[in-house]
Structures are given as structure tokens and as C-alpha cells.
Amino acid sequence: MNRSKDGYKKLQTGWKILSILLLVYTCTAGLLMEVPRLSIVNESIRALYFHVPMWFGMVFLFFMSAFNAIRYLRNGSAFYDILSREFATTGVVYGALGIVTGMIWANYTWGSPWHGDPKQNGAAVALLVYLAYFILRGSLSNDEQSARLGAVYNLFAFAAMIPLIFILPRMADSMHPGSGGNPGFNMYDLDNRMRMVFYPAVLGWILFGLWITDLRIRIKRLTINS
């Protein structure tokens, strides 16, 4: 393949095209296909195809970031540090989009944009933990120090995000589906109508995030090598 000196393998064009096709399908089928008729959420249930994939994408990107942080700590190559940092950047963008879309959705279904919902709070705290990662990195002028501390902190941030988003909200009464005795969408989409759009949407948005990260990594490499 087109591997370069540092071993970076560019995202292949096929994945980019697949991402575009899946997202075109999401935008079309997501608006046109039948959805369960539920009171309160009504048509806004379609936000599931756009709001939730942001979180799936964010978790995937943060996972890749933590994975590359481990790789950096193991062999100390600055290249893995670049990967780790750029994955975290795109992850934060996805998370911010998830928070904002969630607030719009909550405003119309729960009654207010910030409802003090455990999952909402947990997601906000997780994002703040990741924002601190960039502050930490920016505050260190020594590149190697910044990379090493950043990698260690990155692992802490990932370890903090998992309970904040996946475990704690399920132990409390969250308004989010699937938490605290809330049956969630699973009960209604058993007919697979929504899954047919939802899973492609998740994959499409994840690939889209990978693509953007790929571009960021390549730009970073250009600025470093020149």
C-alpha cells in the first residue's frame, strides 16, 4: 500500500466513498422511511439517526486516541502521539455536536435544553475531561513532555469517559432510553425499521470521522516534515 516512512497508511478512497454513500442513504431513508408512531417524540424520533451516531463516533475516535496513546507510551515514536492527538480532536468535535443536537432534541421532548439528566451531565463532564487534555498539552512547551503527559492523561480521560457515559447513567434514573428502567427505543424498533437506517448511519458517521482525522493527521505530518 501507500505507506510512507513513518508507517502511516492513508485511509483508502473506498472507505471515503462508502462513508458518503451511507450518509446519503441516512439523509434520504432517515427522513422518508416509516418510524414508530410514539407520542411526545413524534417525528423527532428521526433525530436518532443523527444525534446518537455522534456519540458512537465520539467513543470510537476516543478509543482510537487511547489506543495510539498506549502505542506511543510503548515505543515513544512521536508519530503515534500525532495520531492520538488528532483522534481526540475529532472526537471532541463529535461530542460537542452530540451535546448540541441533544439539547435541541431535549428542548422539544423533555421540556428544556438542559434537564439535569444523568447521561447529559455525564457526557458534559466527559467532554470537559477531554478539553482539559488539550489545555494540558498546550501548557507544556517541551514536545516530548507534552506527548508523554498527554498520553498518560489520555488514558485517564478514556477510563473516566466509559463510566460517565455508559455506567453511571444506567444506575440513576435517566430520561435517556435504555437507562434506569426506561425501556428506550428497543421495545419499539423490534420490527427493524429503524435499525435499517440506524446501523448504516452509525457506520457512515464513524467513517466520516475517520476521514476527517486522516486529513488532520496528514496536514500535521506535512507541517512537521517541512
Partner: peptide, 11 residues
């Protein structure tokens, strides 16, 4: 109309 607008912007 909505689908068309979203698709144009996305593409």
C-alpha cells in the same frame, strides 16, 4: 424538498 436540500448541502 427537505431531502433535496439536505442532500445538496451534504454532497
Amino acid at each position: 424538498v427537505l431531502v433535496a436540500i439536505i442532500l445538496v448541502i451534504f454532497s
